[in-house]
Design a protein around this nucleic acid. Sequence first.
DNA 1: CCGTAAAATCAAAACGTTTCGCTGCACAGC
DNA 2: GCTGTGCAGCGAAACGTTTTGATTTTACGG
Lengths: 332, 332
Amino acid sequence: MPATIRDIKEQTGLSLATISKYLNGGNVLPENKKKIEASIKDLHYEVNELARGLVTSKTRTIGIMVHNISSPFSGQILHYLTEALREKQYGVLICDSNNDEKLERENVKYLLGKKVDGIIVVPVTADPTFLDATFKKNVPVVLLDRTLSGGRFDCVKIDNRGAVVRAMQVLLNNRHTKIAIIASKREYTGRERYTGFGEAMKRAGLTMHKPYVKLGVHSLAWGYESMKELLAMKDRPTAVFTDNYEITLGAMMAINESGFKCPDDISVLGFDDNVIFHLIDPPVYMVKQPLKEMSNKAVELILGRIETGSLEMPMEISLGTTLVEGESVKKL
Amino acid sequence: MPATIRDIKEQTGLSLATISKYLNGGNVLPENKKKIEASIKDLHYEVNELARGLVTSKTRTIGIMVHNISSPFSGQILHYLTEALREKQYGVLICDSNNDEKLERENVKYLLGKKVDGIIVVPVTADPTFLDATFKKNVPVVLLDRTLSGGRFDCVKIDNRGAVVRAMQVLLNNRHTKIAIIASKREYTGRERYTGFGEAMKRAGLTMHKPYVKLGVHSLAWGYESMKELLAMKDRPTAVFTDNYEITLGAMMAINESGFKCPDDISVLGFDDNVIFHLIDPPVYMVKQPLKEMSNKAVELILGRIETGSLEMPMEISLGTTLVEGESVKKL
DNA sequence: CCGTAAAATCAAAACGTTTCGCTGCACAGC
DNA sequence: GCTGTGCAGCGAAACGTTTTGATTTTACGG
């Protein structure tokens, strides 16, 4: 029912090839150009992307897989990514891996089936094999926020270790020595931040007290439970570093419910800036990631690969972070 | 490079038609079935969805347009929607309207260009004409959370007025009479809730005090500024109804910063449940929407339209809400 | 006015499926 | 032994583009 290039051919008397050329920005005589444009308007013609995709095997669509679509982190990342891609006339096919390795594997298959031109992924799994198929099909991949071993893919992330080492100065400068950490050990970011934490402690000449180290999963519940346990200790830590948004939130909930006061009884230093943390009492001292810059860089990288077909070595880009002051750290 | 149905034809000696029939679940002789399956495995064949889509003009893809992808509401909705659609083997093309009418209009065009089989939309614009094109192209649309005038589209939402009327009982039962409202007037939900608010006041024999009515936009800032103004009044309201997540959050921020205490100095009743509101001090009394049920219903509706091609009258489904108790309302 | 290079146009093939209408076969009922 | 019915299978056409290599038109210097 909708008009095709063939209808335009009938109306203008030109050949398919010429019309196609016009549609793709080629040179046609001004006179013919006029005819074609008039005909397009008259017939309400729009190109059928499916047919075009079939012959070019390009769809101008990027697949995006996020670890968990309902986290605020994903919300912001998706906002920036879709904005940047839209600007370049690319569409996005979004998948939620829901922190599930099996689903993540399926998502890759699904996206390749949809013939996306490239994939941006915030990975759940540490094992990079789930992306093998993209390699075979020559579909470029850019990792976001978390890298994978093997160095086979471009990656945009932040310098997690460095960020934590610097942030820890805040606690150290305020003379904290009994410092705990609540982190996720399942993800790259959590492990990196834990490493940074260890480094900072070591440099300060402090030793890590085993019961103060709470490595678990990326969830509000883990932050909540861990903080409860820390607060219940006879020998309470004076400060806690919390790995991410969900854990920080859970930890603050635990403190608020417990009767203890932050920062009087316990100080908190968090990761992942969010407007929430300016609201709650007290405002939390946080490490803030440059989400917009990360997103833009990821888009730039993947479009570079797609449009130049570049096979250069994958590059890993680490962006810097900033510190957002709060009132959750007490001077001892 | 990837194997096609033609390669299978060569290997099995069968015709294209037979192989296609098999791929689409038709009956073939057990013997041939074996041959085809062996060949598929051998060649790593997978159907080219682009080619299939070209001839069937179905893509098994649903377009989803949300008013603002970085809001927690969208995050949750998207999570449930993608989950339900994935289960039915449908993919999703997600667009962020970013609260921008122009972008919303473009998104419709974009999705239709991508030949989606249907569109689920949380609309920004009140004027339904931006969806006209879907009508012409026979692409079913389901509205989510907000309906549009004209009654031309299926819609899944909650009973906003009723929810507010019932929620207001909490304030009324606690003998509040000086009640303010901070709401967005740009969206359907805000206007409906405002109407419900008015109804509840009227039924209780109370009159709305103009300065207590803050109708503005759906943003943290509006909630924040409005609450500041309310607090600055000589004749302060004793309670405030806040329309949505962002406004409630902003309002709580304003209270916390102002030196006033909730609920001692001012009570708050909010809309949109979120884990945040259990954390902050005090936990907020809230109306909670059944997001999962809403999402599932929307998927059910749109797949029904697509798969049966039904042209029945559009239906509007209103689901009920629940009340989540908090400590933000004071008994007078 | 001719010859030639460059630019514009053309017809036809290709992309990988599904679908249409037809043929051939086996089997049942009379 | 004939007719009728139903099922698998088949070849060919269709879906709406882009691309290729050949051909025509244009422009221009000599």
